[in-house]
């Protein structure tokens, strides 16, 4: 699984970096950023899903590998 943030949609609510601090951080204006390359280790998949499901702008996208 990978995560990414659509910067066109992100408004800096910060739900992703609150709920999944291992995967996201905030930039100097509070917008969400993906840490490293966005690869989600198996133990962080639940956090990734919570971040995506709680983003008010639907800016957090999950890319599931088959």
């Amino acid at each position: 699984m990978k995560v990414q943030i659509n910067p066109e949609l992100c408004q800096g609510h910060g739900r992703c970096y609150d709920l999944a601090p291992g995967l996201f951080r905030d930039d100097d204006e509070g917008y969400g950023q993906v840490l490293s390359d966005g690869a989600v280790p198996p133990e962080a998949e639940r956090d990734a899903r919570l971040a995506a499901l709680n983003c008010p702008e639907r800016a957090v996208e999950l890319l599931e590998e088959r």
Partner: peptide
Amino acid sequence: REVNRHAAFGLGIHR
């Protein structure tokens, strides 16, 4: 409630 995509702080550019 774990999934809570509420709009208490607004939506869009005026968050």
